[in-house]
Design a protein around this nucleic acid. Structure first.
Lengths: 205, 205
DNA sequence: GGTCGATTATATCACGTCGATATATCGACG
DNA sequence: CGTCGATATATCGACGTGATATAATCGACC
């Protein structure tokens, strides 16, 4: 889960661990503050796998934060008295590799684990990296999973069997699913509109 | 998480592991099919802790297994042909202990981990075991957590910074939170109505 | 000008949950 | 008779979480 999210952020520019957490929340909508106990093991995993590489920031400030991939700067080394020249508590900046880009494309397009809401939202937030066809596939899968879950919910214990609180939870659950189906439909409609625009612009038939 | 859910189900009647999974979904709304890799360790944990005890059904067949304080009268004998529900393969039936009941009450009333949607829904589904005052506390806490998350979402990276897909995910996230706040408000209103009814009919018993 | 708390930052731990898998029993269907 | 699908228990590795430790730097206040 985190792998794809981290790779997605690194597609845009380099990041260090702490910053990734903020971006995970603000740009990918991962529920408030993913634990460092997830992020650092994930980074270690990705590095072991050759999907990312570290670019140790030699100076304390700046680093790759503002300039993105362009990193020709050989910065002013401030004299540090201890440890290898890591500024501000050794900051490790991570960069995606070619292998990582391929892995990212593979993970993103894989529609197998879309029955989980988080996985779906995550992939949608990164959907600009997908082809239109794959986007539609993803949305269709999610729609199917939601319909299935809704049917399952309605087919479960009959409502009369539950007390009013359990019933309220079930009914809210059903409404929430319908709410998300409506969203998915909206997104699908959007994809169709884009298709039409493409066929006007690109295909004169 | 599972502990409280399992204890909640066992408050009503005894269950064996496999059945718990179905009930977790159908009565407590836990997202489709909790893994056995969660259920069995949870049961072992609870047993170790003295919150539940096992009542082995020695014979694979039927075994009214005596308990069923509630299900006793009804569970006599159903037509034994295609009726689902009674197992083969040495079945371990779990029963809640007095210690378990106390533990359940303690866990249910604890409002500390209500920032997670699942924990909240779970506690709401079991809210009939709470006093009205504790129900309101729970709802207020959840409301606060949702407002906080909404503010955080709105305060994050400004929308113009995101591509249309990431933006769509963020906006849906915000709407989903508002949707749940509306639900919580509904539930709070209900609690107030019940309060009023109590004060009118309180001594009519 | 010194300390204090907040923020930035990396890392590790125990624990819980998940998904996959192994194993076994029974009823139904052919 | 075999095997398929549902019932049923159990374990495994992988992953995410929350708590905690460590540490440097920054701004604020006195």
């Amino acid at each position: 889960m985190l792998d794809i999210a981290i790779l997605g952020l690194l597609m845009e520019r380099d990041h260090h661990g702490y910053e990734l957490r903020v971006q995970l929340r603000d740009r990918l909508g991962l529920s408030s503050n993913v634990s460092f106990g997830s992020i650092y093991p994930a980074l270690a995993r990705l590095e072991r796998h050759g999907s990312v590489e570290t670019v140790i920031a030699a100076d304390g400030r700046l680093t790759a934060l503002s300039t993105g991939s362009l990193s020709g700067e050989r910065a002013t080394l401030r004299s540090r008295r201890s440890a290898p020249g890591l500024g501000r508590r050794g900051r490790k900046v991570y960069r995606i590799t070619e292998r990582g880009r391929q892995e990212f494309a593979r993970l993103l397009a894989d529609p197998s684990t879309v029955d989980n809401g988080r996985n779906f939202s995550l992939r949608m937030a990164l959907a600009r990296y997908l082809t239109p066809a794959l986007r539609v596939t993803l949305l269709d899968r999610r729609r199917g999973a939601l319909l299935e879950r809704l049917a399952e919910l309605r087919a479960g214990t009959q409502v009369s069997d539950l007390d009013s609180y359990a019933r309220a939870v079930m009914e809210h659950g059903a409404r929430a699913i319908e709410f998300e189906i409506a969203w998915v439909d909206e997104l699908l409609a959007h994809e169709r509109i884009n298709d039409e625009q493409d066929s006007y612009a690109g295909d004169a038939g």
